[in-house]
Simulated assay, not measured.
Amino acid sequence: MDNRPVGMFDSGVGGLAVARAFRRLAPSEHILYFADTAWFPYGPRPAAEVRKRSFAIAHRLLASDVKLIVVACNTASAAALDALREAFPAVPFVGIVPGVKPAARQSRSRHVVVLATAGTLDGGLFERVVEEFGKGTRVARVVGHGLAEAVERAEHRTPHVRARLRELLQPEVSAGADTIVLGCTHYAFLANVIEEEFPGVTVVDTTEPVARRALDLLRERDALGPGPGGLSLIASLDPERFAQKVERLGFQRAEAVQV
């Protein structure tokens, strides 16, 4: 048993999709969630900058004695996951890999779309995943400009966002794509909207597999917490506003502190 918290981080609310799945699977675990709101969004930023922020956040989470860190952000995983594991070998890190593997397996048309940020699609991690698991499948890359920002503003069900999704995804769906991979944790909050706009298309969201992997690592290390579980928030800018966003997304009211 290990009553230390599990650390998670993202540039904003997106990683809360992972936190939500993890809390369903491991309700006795306490999550310390770092939202790098001062640097949101990560997607358009250079990889070196995202890597620097990821290391700063990892140091802050480790200062709070977390037992595991989930890089709950596709862009940060692409930019920093390997380097974080190398720098902190005693700490288990769980990152997010775009779900090309399950998408390729499920697609009947052998045509899938990966909706992600530029930082994720341009990274070497994504290229390796496509090379390994995308053989024989047309993998279309679509950059979701503006979508993470809309989710961050809790405007993910607005007519504007629906129109933007149709603009981004309709060309590939019309060309035969039958599977859409959500390559950004912010986009997990758009899953239902995408399914409504494109009936019959399969949406692949990797947040639950990532949460399950974190739980498996805790079990392997005999590090499950005794409870009670909970959620603590850290925000690098405007913590009260971030706490309000968390509440609007269906989490219980949680206090946020600023660093």
Rank of each mutant, 00 (worst) to 15 (best):
A175V: 02
P171T: 03
S174R: 12
A163N: 13
H186W: 02
T185S: 08
A154D: 11
R162I: 15
E167D: 11
R166C: 06
T179W: 03
L182G: 07
E155A: 13
P159A: 09
E149Q: 13
P171M: 06
G176E: 00
G183I: 04
E172M: 03
Q170G: 09
L182S: 02
C184M: 10
R162A: 15
F189G: 09
H156C: 06
I180L: 07
T158Y: 04
L147Q: 06
V161H: 09
H145M: 13
G176C: 02
H145Q: 14
R153Y: 02
Y187A: 13
G144F: 04
S174P: 09
T179Y: 06
A154G: 03
H186C: 09
P159Y: 09
G144K: 04
E152R: 07
A177K: 04
E149T: 12
I180E: 02
A148P: 00
G183F: 01
A150I: 02
H156E: 11
A175T: 00
S174Y: 01
P159W: 03
L169R: 01
T185M: 10
E155W: 12
I180K: 08
G176V: 00
V173D: 03
R157L: 12
E172L: 10
E172S: 10
G144T: 04
D178V: 00
R153M: 11
F189T: 05
A154F: 14
C184Q: 09
R157V: 14
E152V: 00
H160N: 14
E167Q: 13
L169E: 01
G144N: 08
A163S: 13
Q170T: 15
A163Y: 04
E167A: 11
E172H: 15
L169C: 09
L147M: 08
V173M: 06
R166T: 14
A188S: 15
T158A: 03
R164M: 12
E149W: 10
G144D: 06
E149Y: 10
I180D: 00
A177R: 06
L147P: 09
P159K: 06
R164L: 13
A163I: 07
T158F: 06
H186P: 03
R166L: 11
A148T: 02
E152S: 10
A175M: 02
H156D: 09
L147I: 01
R157T: 15
D178K: 00
S174L: 14
L168R: 07
E149V: 15
L165D: 05
E167G: 08
